[in-house]
Simulated scan of single mutants.
Amino acid sequence: MKKKIIKSFLRNVNCSFKKLKKNINFIKQHNINSIFFFLNQNNCKSFFFLNKIFKNCINNALNLGIKFEDLKIHSIYITKGKILKKISPRAKGKCDFVKRISNNITLFLSHG
């Protein structure tokens, strides 16, 4: 039987790259059941976004008729998203530029 790959994307996440990368490296080592338990127990900003994308991807799989127990993480990665540039006024007519960097999370679950 051919492997089915279910994908899900979460765009423009306002969370730092380092925090997301650290938690994704932790998640890659575990199975789906323990991931859900861990994501629901912790109260971190990055876990909120990771929980959201996992629920979305699993609902996509259930709509295709795939059982929850058969799913495994195929790959998960982060890429750079939009950069929002803001201007902060300073003294003597000068200004500082503030960059708000967002990230994109991509999750692939495999079946089989």
Rank of each mutant, 00 (worst) to 15 (best):
R90V: 04
A91T: 11
K86C: 00
F26T: 14
K19Y: 03
R100N: 14
I53T: 03
G112R: 07
S102D: 01
K22W: 03
K19S: 09
S34E: 12
L50P: 06
K99C: 06
S16E: 02
S46W: 01
C15Q: 10
F48I: 09
I83T: 07
L10E: 09
F17M: 03
S75L: 12
S46T: 13
T106F: 15
H30S: 14
F49K: 04
H74Q: 11
F17D: 07
I35M: 04
F38D: 07
R11N: 13
G65I: 05
N51D: 06
I24Q: 05
H111C: 15
R90Y: 05
N42D: 00
N40V: 02
F48R: 04
N12R: 08
K19E: 11
G81Y: 04
S88V: 04
G112I: 07
H111M: 04
K94L: 08
K3V: 14
G93H: 07
K28I: 14
F108W: 08
F54W: 09
R11D: 07
N63T: 12
I101V: 14
N43Y: 07
N104I: 06
M1C: 10
I5F: 05
S88N: 13
K86R: 15
L62A: 08
D96Y: 14
P89C: 06
K86Q: 08
K7E: 14
I35A: 02
N42Q: 11
C57M: 09
G112F: 09
L62C: 05
S110K: 15
N33F: 11
